[in-house]
Write a protein that binds this DNA or RNA. Structure first.
Lengths: 173, 173
DNA sequence: TGTGCTTTGTCCAGATATTAGACACGTTTG
DNA sequence: CAAACGTGTCTAATATCTGGACAAAGCACA
């Protein structure tokens, strides 16, 4: 966990798994693979991969992506800190949108571009690693709510669950 | 602003504009339209629409969506509280992903389904209207960081920019 | 196995922030 | 106009945050 990044790739096609493994070998210290998401949760719990690359289409013939979406939500709920990048052969905008709304870090389509895949995975890890100081988070949220209330400090304070004076103080700084 | 929701539709095709206007007439109290995003910022500042429906492809022949993406970021930066739903004729997954990452509330493709469009727009408004109390936001963030630090409270407190004891207190509640 | 370094849980006392309440004043609204 | 509402400001009690300290526990590594 000190510095070497690891990745867990889940795809039911062993050929893809091999290809990805070779492609990512130079980037990640360890590349774990699974041909089925069944044991994904256990594997993640044990190995703590830095990022997960999850194929959306399992159970041959079912290409709606329901399967992958289900696993995405399951994994994301269990490990909200581990970024999940989805990959699918069926470029479906609606699916991609739904995936991102369900917590996916990114969404790429097959056939993929190696460099782009690596960039996407790195970005996902970087973004997941960022930690926003509490005060900054607070300030940003306060400003957002205040602007939504069109400057009405009383209402904003109310919505935020703090007193009006406290909101004053927070604005000064 | 009390209850009647308004929408601003930006599309360079007047026919689409008319179609959308009719489709949304029963849902929104006011439907504003623009055939070019040039005056979008001014219009938004003046009219405060509840949601914006923005077409991605202006300047005929340029279909990469760059134009729309530019306007998305510009509008989103200026009015972060106003949800922006993108619409495009060119179903491009990569574009959709980038749009969502750039702050779009949703992404739909032409031809659209009226009911779905209305649902998406309503969702966008609802989501934008939600206000999370400051304490809840704080707690969620603290727990996230703490789990990312694998329970190491000293490091978590450090990353959060608070003292270790304060983190203790926050955990108790 | 032992030695250092880090982390933990707990305490303290001073500094800072938050709170409810109050007040005069300006603005909105019916 | 009058009532209701928001603002800016103040106070005093309360709560929270902070740095510092301490022994004990955990861990890394020779």
């Amino acid at each position: 966990m000190v510095n070497g990044k690891s990745i867990l790739v889940i795809d039911d096609n062993p050929a893809i798994l091999t290809a990805v493994k070779i492609c990512l070998g130079g980037t990640f210290e360890r590349t774990l693979t699974l041909t089925s998401p069944d044991k994904a949760l256990a594997t993640i719990a044990q190995e703590h991969p830095s990022v997960i690359l999850l194929d959306m289409n399992f159970s041959l013939g079912v290409n709606s992506g329901q399967e992958g979406m289900m696993w995405l939500t399951a994994i994301h709920r269990r490990f909200p800190d581990t970024p999940i990048v989805l990959i699918t052969a069926y470029a479906d905008v609606r699916l991609a949108v739904r995936a991102l709304k369900n917590g996916a870090a990114d969404f790429v389509t097959k056939p993929w571009d190696n460099d782009e895949l690596i960039r996407v995975l790195k970005d996902a890890i970087d973004k997941a690693g960022e930690v926003i100081p509490l005060e900054q988070l607070e300030n940003e949220h306060v400003r957002k709510v205040l602007s939504k209330c069109e400057g009405n400090m009383k209402r904003a304070a109310d919505l935020l669950g703090i007193s009006r004076q406290t909101l004053y103080n927070k604005m000064k700084s």
